[in-house]
Design a protein around this nucleic acid. Structure first.
Length: 273
DNA sequence: CTAGGTGCCTGATTGC
DNA sequence: TGCAATCAGGCACCTA
C-alpha cells in the first residue's frame, strides 16, 4: 500500500510531467473519488489552472495550483499514470486530469478508497497530522517525549497519523524489526535506548525505501521518462515473510494481528510483547 | 487517551 | 470444478 516513500516517489516522478502544465479538463469516472468539493464543482474550479508545485505531507500528495491546493490520498490501491490522451484507459481508472500538452494524469484505484480534496489552504485537510518523521526539526528528544506520554500499544501508535505522519503497515513492521521492538509493547514501557533505536529505524527504513523508489510492485507508470523501480520490495526484512526464516537470526518469522492489522515480526529478535 | 466496532470497496483466498 | 463466504486494509466515524 502507498505510504510515505511511495508518495514521495510519486512527487519526484510526477514533477517533470506536471510542473507548469495547465489543467485542460477533468473527468470524474467515479465521482466518489472526489471528496471536496463535489465532482462537478471541482471540474469547474480546476479547468485552466496551472500546476505550480508538487509536494508531500504524510501520505498526501499535494498539487499547488493558482487558486488552491489539490490534496490526494491514495489509501489502499491508488496509483497514477501519465499517458497520451489518445492511449487506451485501463480498468479502475477513476479520475482523469487532462493536461495542456496532450497528455493525461490518470488516477487508478481498484478499491475506490482514494480521495481528492481541493481546498484554499492545505491545512484544512492536513491540520491534524503529526510531525514528518524525516523533518530535521523533529529531534530524537522530542520524539522520545511524545512516545513516553502514550500508554497504548506501540504499533498502532506509530500508524496513528496524528502521532506521526506517513507510516503505514509495511514500514511500521520494518522499523519495529530493525529496532528489535515487539509490536505489542506499550509505548510508555520502552527504554530510552529502545526509543532512540526506534527513531533511527523509522528514518532508516523510510530513507532507504525512498532511495529504492518504494515497495509496491506496480504502482507507477509514468510512461516516457524512466519508471519508478519500486525496488524496496527486495529489501523487506519481515513484511510478508511470515513462515520464512529471520534474516538476522534464522528463527521463523510470525504473523499476528495487532490493532486489526496483519503484523509480521521475529519472536526471537523482538522479544516479548 | 485507548480500544474496539462498522462501513467503504473489490480481487484473492478459503471452504464445502 | 464451481460458487459463495471470508479476508485484507487506511481512515472516518461511532461507542464505551
Amino acid at each position: 500500500m502507498p505510504e510515505l516513500p511511495e508518495i514521495e516517489t510519486y512527487a519526484r516522478h510526477l514533477r517533470p510531467y506536471l510542473l507548469g502544465r495547465r489543467v485542460s479538463y477533468l473527468e470524474a469516472l467515479w465521482p466518489g473519488s472526489i471528496a471536496v468539493p463535489d465532482a462537478e464543482t471541482l471540474k469547474a474550479l480546476l479547468t485552466g489552472q496551472r500546476i505550480e508545485a508538487i509536494s508531500r505531507r504524510g501520505k498526501f500528495l499535494s498539487f499547488s495550483l493558482d487558486g488552491g491546493v489539490l490534496l490526494i490520498h491514495l489509501r489502499m490501491t491508488g496509483r497514477f499514470r501519465v499517458e497520451a490522451a489518445a492511449s487506451p484507459r485501463q480498468p479502475h481508472d477513476r479520475v482523469i486530469m487532462g493536461l495542456d500538452d496532450g497528455r493525461e494524469l490518470r488516477f487508478n484505484d481498484t478499491r475506490k478508497f482514494g480521495r481528492f480534496y481541493f481546498v484554499p489552504d492545505a491545512a484544512l485537510v492536513t491540520a491534524n497530522l503529526g510531525p514528518e518523521p524525516l523533518d530535521e526539526t523533529l529531534t530524537p528528544a522530542e520524539f522520545r517525549e511524545r512516545i513516553r506520554k502514550r500508554s497504548g500499544t506501540v504499533k498502532p501508535l506509530l500508524m496513528n497519523q496524528t502521532f506521526l505522519a506517513g507510516l503505514g503497515n509495511i514500514y511500521t513492521d520494518e522499523a519495529l524489526f530493525r529496532a528489535r521492538i515487539h509490536p505489542l509493547r506499550k509505548a510508555n514501557t520502552l527504554t530510552n535506548e529502545e526509543i532512540t533505536a526506534l527513531f533511527e529505524a523509522i528514518r532508516h527504513v523510510l530513507q532507504e525505501s525512498i532511495a529504492y523508489e518504494g515497495t509496491s510492485l506496480d504502482f507507477v507508470y509514468t510512461g516516457g521518462l524512466r519508471e519508478a523501480s519500486a525496488a524496496y520490495q527486495s529489501r523487506l526484512q519481515v513484511y510478508g515473510r511470515a513462515g520464512e526464516p529471520c534474516l538476522r537470526c534464522g528463527h521463523i518469522l510470525e504473523r499476528i494481528v495487532v490493532g486489526g492489522r496483519g503484523t509480521h515480526f521475529c519472536p526471537q529478535c523482538q522479544g516479548d510483547g
